[in-house]
Each structure stands twice: as structure tokens, then as C-alpha cells.
Design a protein around this nucleic acid. Sequence first.
DNA 1: CTTGACTCTGGACTATAGTCCACAGGCTAT
DNA 2: ATAGCCTGTGGACTATAGTCCAGAGTCAAG
Lengths: 137, 137
Amino acid sequence: MSSIAIGQLAKAGNVNIDTVRYYERKNLLMPEARTPSGYRRYSGDSIRRLRFIRKAQGLGFSLKEIGNMLDMSSAHDAECGNIKQYAEKKIDDIQVRISDLQRIRDGLRQIAASCPGGDSPLENCTILEHFYKNEAQ
Amino acid sequence: MSSIAIGQLAKAGNVNIDTVRYYERKNLLMPEARTPSGYRRYSGDSIRRLRFIRKAQGLGFSLKEIGNMLDMSSAHDAECGNIKQYAEKKIDDIQVRISDLQRIRDGLRQIAASCPGGDSPLENCTILEHFYKNEAQ
DNA sequence: CTTGACTCTGGACTATAGTCCACAGGCTAT
DNA sequence: ATAGCCTGTGGACTATAGTCCAGAGTCAAG
């Protein structure tokens, strides 16, 4: 049998052993079987699956989203379009986050630019002034 | 006395009453005094302070960072440069987050672009293929 | 005096993604 | 047989920023 133990899977995926168990609780990565003494046994496919999870995480997907994609990828009636749609939605989500952050960054830059800085007393600090200003939230 | 109760402060700041208590536990917003029966009493300055907190949050500062800025802003020896430095560090932090997200977005776009989509079978899905690929993490 | 609104406290619960712990049992090599 | 890993379980804990709840006390108006 080429099945492997949890420690080997964890090592192969370069993750903590508890992380593998955590993914199991989240229904993302189930062992193929258990030994008579209760030890988890994983197939070689589990390594692929674990790699999938880590890769997708690195691209900004949450475990929940990853679970959906994995479900899709094993659904017998799934089409490529389902997955592509998911990816495109994610791209849009990320774009929104980027735009939000850019807006915040630009606002902060503007406030900071007019601040004298250095050893000027706090009364002249336009940053604090801005935070205290009474404007629409 | 022009002191106000917690409910009035919460309303003035447009936040949940529990949020005001939470900020107190975090040492961000302390009541001026307590009535004999233990009710919190806030000065008008608390409204300003609460506004400060919400505004800074909107600009991406964490409560911890906001606490630091508030401490600075009331330190007798504080200089404008201290605050400005803080803001500039935050701008850099945000810039890093933006760059990360842009990298992720571009990667995802590239993967998605080559995917046929539509009713093409999953074997042709370059998105799944990419996630399963054996590359450096 | 009673009703309704307000406030008090401490603690539990939300989401996310894990990590760490103790205590117990399993497995392998010497 | 015994040392020294490996694995099992359940539960606690991390960070962040709150929200919600129960049970009790307070306060003002009718």
C-alpha cells in the first residue's frame, strides 16, 4: 500500500500536523481510511489536494472558497465555466480591496503632506486635526 | 453639568453602546466619572475622541495603533514628527498590502485568461490545473 | 407605585486560520 | 522490555473588533 501517515503528509505539504487535522474538521482533506488502531491513512491524492489548498490560499482564497472549488472540481456535472466564474469573482473582490486601500492611502498621504512634522508642536499637526475634524463619516 | 451618559455618547458617535464599553476595556475611551450608582459619565471631549477613533479606523489604523496615537497626542513632550512618522509608516504598510494584492490579482487574471470557461469539461480547466501544479510555494 | 427605558456586570459568541497542550495509546529498534 | 518517536482526542488559546445576553439595579414620568 502506498498510503501515508499524517506526519508524512504534513511534511510533504510543508504544513503543521495540526493544520492537516484542522482541514479535516473543515471537510477539506479527509483521510482515505484509518488503521485498526485509529491512525489516519492518506492516499497520494491527498498531497495533491493539500497542495491545491495552499496554492489557492496564496492567491487570496479563503478555506471556505477553496472548499467550494474542491467540491466543484469533483462534481460529475461541473463545467469549466463554474470554476472560471469563481476565479473572476475573486479577481473582482481583490480589485475592490485594492481600490479601497488606494483611496485610504491617498487620503492619508494628503493629510500627512500638509503636516509640518519635525519638532513642530502638536497644535500644528494636520493629521491629528483631521482625525478630530467633524465631517461625514 | 454637561456630562453625558453612555447611551448618548454611543448615539452621538453612531456606534453600538457595547462598542463604547469595549473601547474602555481597551483603554481608548475612559469615562470622566461615575455617578454614585455606578453609571458612566462622559465629557464632551469623549465625543471628539470617539470620532477620532472611528475616523482613524476608516483610514486603516488598528485600535492598537489608534491607542498609540491618542497617547502621543496627549503626551506633553510629543512632537508633530512623531505623529507624522506614524502616518508615513502606515502609508508604507498600506502600499505593501496593495502591491501584494496586485500581484495576486495579476496572477489570477493570467490563470483565468487561459481557461476556456463555458461548458468545457474540467480536464481543460487551467485554473484547477494551476492549483494542482507542483511548483515552489 | 408602577412602567418603561436606561445602565451595570461578567461572560459567551461571531468570523478566520490555525497552534499548542495534556494525557493516552501505538509502534519500532535495540 | 524499554526508550523514544508517532498518533489519537478534546479542548484551550492566539489575534481583531466587536456583538449579544441574562440578571440585576436605577431613574424619570404618569
